[in-house]
Simulated assay, not measured.
Amino acid sequence: MSQGEPNSSPAQFDVFVTYQSILQNEEISTPLAAILTLTQLIEKSSAGTMFELVQALNDGAEILKQRTPNPISLNAGCELFIAFVTLFPHDSDSFSDLKTELVKQGRNYATEALTYRDKIAALALGFIEDDSVILTHSYSRVVMKTLLRAHERKRISVYVTEARPRGLGLRTYDELTAVGIPCTVVLDSAVSYVMDKVDLVLVGSEAVVESGGLINAVGSNQIAIIAKAANKPFYALAESYKFHRLFPLSQYDLPTHNPNVLSFPPASVSTSLPTKGAVIGSGLQKITPAEGSRSMTQEQVARNPNVDYTRPDLISLVFSDVGSLTPEGVSQYLVGMFAG
């Protein structure tokens, strides 16, 4: 067996293809897709002992990690499921029966987990007052569920960041305005400008880590810093399967950080000068169409991070399917969860 290949028949089961297929369902998040993929791996595996099965799961998880540009939330799902398999009582009559039961439990968990966003929305609703002005960042399914639930019962208005470079805030804007929620897109660079008009901040999550800190779409950290300075509550919404045994101390401890992030291009690479077109007159700068249509190159985008880390002291509460937790509460929950 080659290194990194799961202990199952590769001709019959491709772990990455299975994972991508499951992700086609818009309702299934990355960690849940990972759990369902590993569940199928158990079903297809020829492992005859628990040691072989856990090795196959670890190998499958490693393949997913290596082939995914941002594996943080994927790792959270794999870690949770492998811990569950390891701690599961081994009292079945045969190992085959045990594998059958693990597959059943994995699928039952995924079905139940699809209800978590409703639980979180119901919990967060109590912290949203009538006529609230909410700031959110990028696009998050659990945040969308919460905002739609709030709209059914209260009057709310929403500012959403554009969330460069992917611009997913525009998707949030489209979906909110489609149901009649007043919404305005805010430049990422205008968060400080708009914060005084905001009552609270709601963001989703890639993962909530062992320190109680948050990993989310890049820009979340600076929003949290500004919210803290303005004395506005900053709430993170996260399903418990996104709780991750990771303890970053800075941005550069994230698994997604690599030497290319924020690196300087070689000195031999020339940079283009600004297009001429600025004129003096009436105190304003006139911009030609060529200047106005500029955008970052793919190389420039690639040198930027796609997620960042928000320290726990900047987070007011984490709303989850297991309750509203302080960042310290997340740490305690994680310890209990992986201690069995």
Score class of each variant (00 low, 15 high):
1 M>P: 13
3 Q>T: 04
5 E>W: 04
8 S>C: 15
10 P>N: 05
14 D>Y: 01
15 V>S: 09
15 V>D: 14
16 F>D: 15
17 V>L: 15
29 S>V: 11
30 T>I: 11
31 P>L: 06
33 A>D: 15
40 Q>C: 02
41 L>F: 03
49 T>E: 10
51 F>A: 12
57 L>I: 05
58 N>F: 08
63 I>C: 13
64 L>M: 13
71 P>A: 01
74 L>T: 04
75 N>K: 12
75 N>P: 07
90 H>R: 08
95 F>P: 09
97 D>I: 04
99 K>L: 04
108 N>P: 04
113 A>P: 06
114 L>S: 06
116 Y>R: 10
117 R>Y: 08
120 I>L: 15
125 L>I: 03
126 G>P: 09
128 I>K: 00
129 E>R: 10
132 S>Y: 14
141 R>S: 08
155 R>N: 13
162 E>W: 01
173 Y>E: 09
180 G>R: 00
182 P>Q: 09
186 V>F: 05
187 L>Q: 10
188 D>V: 03
189 S>L: 07
191 V>D: 09
196 D>I: 03
197 K>T: 04
200 L>G: 10
204 G>I: 05
207 A>M: 05
209 V>T: 13
210 E>W: 11
216 N>L: 00
217 A>K: 14
221 N>A: 03
237 L>M: 15
237 L>S: 08
249 L>D: 13
249 L>I: 09
252 Y>L: 07
253 D>A: 05
253 D>W: 07
255 P>M: 06
258 N>P: 10
259 P>F: 12
260 N>G: 09
263 S>Q: 10
264 F>V: 14
268 S>Q: 11
269 V>W: 04
269 V>D: 03
270 S>T: 12
277 G>L: 02
284 L>Y: 13
285 Q>F: 02
289 P>S: 00
290 A>I: 01
290 A>Q: 03
291 E>W: 01
296 M>Q: 10
298 Q>N: 07
315 I>L: 04
319 F>Q: 15
323 G>W: 05
325 L>R: 10
326 T>M: 11
327 P>G: 08
327 P>T: 02
328 E>H: 05
328 E>I: 08
333 Y>N: 06
340 G>F: 06
